[in-house]
C-alpha cells in the first residue's frame, strides 16, 4: 500500500508523454506488439512427439528479445529535444496517389487481366507524378504492357489473363 499518487506527478506524466520523441512512440508500439506476439506464440498447438523442439520455442525467444530491444530503444531516446517532424517537407499527394492506384491495380488485376490494368496504371501514374505529355506516356504504357505480357508468356511465366482472355 503505497501513498496515493500525487497530483503533480500526474501532470508531470502528461508532460512527459507530450514531449515523447517519435522513437518513444515507436518503442512503445513495438513493446505492445512483441507482447502480443509472445502470447500468440505461447498458445501455438503443441506437437505430440516429446523429442522435437517445438514450434513455439523460437518465436517466443525472438519475441522476448524484441521486447527487450524496444525497452532499450525507449530508454535510449531520452533526448527530448524537439526535432522537426520528418513529414514536414514532404508533398504526400504523389505518394498517396501511387499507393491508392496500386491498390486499385492489384484489386483489378485478376478480373481485367494484366495488359489492361498495367496499361491503365502506366498511363495514369506519370501524370500524377507531374508528367504532362500524354502521347508519350500512352504509347509507352501500350508498348510496355503488351511487350511484357508477350515476353512473359513466351517464357511460360503466366500473368493474369482476366475475363477478356488476355
Amino acid at each position: 500500500m503505497g501513498p496515493p499518487p500525487h497530483r503533480d506527478d500526474e501532470v508531470g506524466g502528461v508532460k512527459l508523454i507530450k514531449s515523447w520523441t517519435a522513437d518513444r512512440w515507436i518503442a512503445s508500439g513495438l513493446a505492445v506488439f512483441s507482447i502480443f506476439y509472445v502470447i500468440l506464440a505461447y498458445n501455438l498447438p503443441r506437437f505430440s512427439m516429446a523429442t522435437i523442439i517445438d514450434a513455439h520455442v523460437f518465436p517466443m525467444f525472438i519475441g522476448i528479445v524484441q521486447f527487450a530491444l524496444s525497452i532499450w530503444l525507449w530508454l535510449d531516446s531520452r533526448d527530448t529535444a524537439k526535432k522537426d517532424s520528418p513529414w514536414k517537407s514532404l508533398e504526400l499527394r504523389g505518394g498517396l496517389f501511387m499507393v491508392l492506384l496500386s491498390a486499385v491495380y492489384i484489386e483489378m488485376l485478376p478480373s481485367i487481366g494484366f495488359i489492361v490494368s498495367t496499361f491503365i496504371f502506366l498511363a495514369i501514374s506519370p501524370y500524377i507524378l507531374g508528367w504532362k505529355n500524354w502521347v508519350i506516356s500512352l504509347v509507352l504504357a501500350a508498348i510496355l504492357s503488351m511487350g511484357t505480357y508477350w515476353l512473359f508468356s513466351t517464357l511460360m511465366v503466366p500473368l493474369p489473363k482476366g475475363i477478356l482472355g488476355f
Binding site: 509507352l140 508498348i143 510496355l144 511487350g147 508477350w150 515476353l151 517464357l155
Partner: peptide, 18 residues
C-alpha cells in the same frame, strides 16, 4: 531508346522460349 532496348530483350528471349 527504351523501346529499342525492350524490343531487343523481347526478341532475344522470344527465340528460345517458344
Amino acid at each position: 531508346f527504351i523501346a529499342l532496348l525492350l524490343s531487343m530483350v523481347i526478341i532475344l528471349t522470344a527465340g528460345c522460349g517458344s
